[in-house]
């Protein structure tokens, strides 16, 4: 009985949140964009007409005909590359966001609730992460740990990202732990771990949600940047990687001295669109979480 009731609770909350969300037109547009790219990533093998890692024709063919966006310098289908690229870009973005969320909230809640020396040490780490310029740091990590690896990429991006979230979660924790219901839990005999898990964490969740969406945005942009600089994993083609090859393998000059817009524009546009979509969703979520941002209607 209890479980069933809990499920309906969740459903009700979801429905009412969805109702607010629906009235945010920008948020809905953002969600449509994001969902479009997510389904593109999921169904890539069915949508893409060719294998993007296979040479299928002459190189640098113009768009049109069988190859919607032409072929690249290796004779691979650009349109298929683009569709498979959604997979790599999105999975890096979301994985990094999850890892950052995990590290950031854990560090923030533990530092804020425990206080004292633990707080000092953890926050100095966060400060170090925050003050180091992130791009060189990522390049350094990628270079040291082997630069052509998907997981190293995720690690580098995560290490750089958690500082801000940890600081924010800590701040919220500091105010939450002074609330009477936390003291009441201590009076019940609850341990520190129990209070952090049951009383602090759930109350930081709404805040974390919107910031995780922004984290995903940051991670995808950073991934594109790193890949463009040639630090990506060449066996996993992302949009940033496509731009990198376009840059290094002559996309700007093409076969006859003209820039190959069919090769350069699509990946850049995809990155811009996903980022835009996520930003719009993030803002809408923020509005749900923080009613003060909500416009009266």
């Amino acid at each position: 009985m209890a479980l069933k009731r809990r499920l309906t609770d969740w459903r009700n909350r979801l429905v009412s949140s969805a109702f607010i969300f629906r009235h945010n037109r920008a948020g809905v547009i953002g969600l449509v964009i994001v969902l479009f790219f997510i389904s593109m990533a999921i169904f890539a093998p069915f949508i893409a007409p060719f294998n993007p890692y296979e040479r299928i024709d002459r190189s640098l063919l113009p768009p049109g005909g069988v190859y919607l966006l032409g072929t690249n310098d290796m004779g691979q289908d650009i349109f298929s590359e683009l569709i498979w690229g959604a997979r790599v870009s999105l999975s890096i973005g979301f994985t990094v966001a999850l890892v950052v969320m995990f590290i950031g909230t854990t560090v923030g809640v533990v530092a804020g609730y425990t206080g004292g020396l633990v707080d000092e040490v953890l926050m100095r780490f966060a400060d170090i992460i925050l003050v180091l310029p992130s791009i060189p740091l990522m390049i350094l990590i990628a270079a040291i740990m082997g630069r052509h690896n998907f997981y190293v990429m995720i690690l580098a991006l995560s290490v750089v990202g958690w500082g801000g979230l940890a600081r924010m979660v800590r701040a919220v924790t500091l105010s939450l732990k002074e609330r009477t219901f936390v003291e009441a839990a201590r009076a019940l005999g609850a341990s520190g771990g129990h209070i952090m898990a049951k009383h602090i964490l759930p109350n930081t969740a709404p805040l974390i949600l919107s910031s995780v969406i922004y984290q995903a945005v940051g991670a995808m942009m950073a991934e594109a940047g790193l890949a463009f600089l040639g630090l990506g994993d060449p066996t996993a083609k992302s949009w940033g990687m496509m731009l990198h090859y376009a840059q290094t393998a002559g996309g700007w000059w093409g076969a006859n001295g003209n820039p190959m817009w069919n090769w350069i524009i699509p990946p850049g546009l995809c990155i811009a669109l996903v980022v835009l979509g996520l930003m719009l969703v993030g803002q809408a979520v923020e509005e749900i979480v923080n009613p003060r941002l909500r416009r009266r209607r």
Binding site: D9, T180, F181, A185, P202, N203
Partner: peptide, 10 residues
């Protein structure tokens, strides 16, 4: 103030 807003009575 003394009840956690995210927990139900049970």
């Amino acid at each position: 103030e003394s009840l956690n807003p995210r927990m139900n009575v049970f």
